[in-house]
């Protein structure tokens, strides 16, 4: 508990609204460019990488709350966003977000966790539908005679893994571009400073 409180410095708290706003605006940009992905957890991932898992989790949770104002179904996926924040943060603490190949592994783990949490939510709460174009995939698998669980898992594996892995790469590239002076003020910014000097 004490460790969690220690993460919430004034600086870390100020990162949360910015992370949330990035999630929302990036999500809108994706829609504007008509890219068939979500990419609406990039802010959560950046915050989790530099400020730790719990700050990341709050960023994810608040983002879904704000998304929920305009689309209430998003509220059901709050645990997914929070878990993404926690997983990225915990792995970042272990130094798993400092090299490209490590980021790829982190991306896979985040996607896996997201699939595990999002699938039951989609099946139980929304009867397998998500209200997006990716439902076509669910329908195709269902039409081939598979069960709803198999269908939703297949759809999530496709969508979530592409989405989460791409998001974490974008997050990683952006963290890499932050100045050392800025990173030094963050709870876990030092991971990304040392690497720069080594290279």
């Amino acid at each position: 508990m004490k460790g969690i409180k220690k993460d919430f410095t004034l600086f870390a708290i100020l990162l949360i609204p910015i992370g949330v706003a990035i999630n929302v605006v990036a999500g809108e940009l994706v829609e504007l460019l008509k890219v068939p992905l979500f990419l609406n957890q990039i802010g959560t991932m950046i915050v989790a990488m530099v400020a730790g898992p719990w700050v990341g989790a709050i960023t994810g949770g608040v983002s879904k709350l704000i998304f929920g104002i305009f689309n209430p179904t998003q509220l059901a996926f709050m645990p997914v966003a929070m878990a993404s924040g926690i997983v990225v943060g915990l792995l970042a603490k272990k130094g798993m977000t400092t090299k490209i190949w490590k980021v790829a592994i982190t991306g896979f783990i985040v996607a896996l966790v997201a699939i595990l949490i999002a699938t039951p939510t989609t099946v139980i709460v929304f009867g397998g539908a998500s209200g997006t174009g990716s439902d076509a995939l669910t329908a195709i698998v269902l039409a081939s005679g598979k069960e709803i669980w198999t269908a939703v898992i297949t759809q999530k594996i496709f969508i979530e893994s592409i989405d989460k892995i791409l998001s974490i790469f974008v997050a990683y590239m952006i963290v890499r571009k932050m100045s050392d002076q800025y990173l030094a003020k963050q709870n876990y910014g030092h991971f990304y400073i040392n690497k720069k000097k080594a290279s």
């Binding site: 600086f11 910015i18 802010g43 950046i46």
Partner: peptide, 19 residues
Amino acid sequence: LKAFFPALTPLILSSFSST
């Protein structure tokens, strides 16, 4: 998809530095 990155990077970096 390629346009995504040059639009987002300056936005994120500048908003984070305003903290």
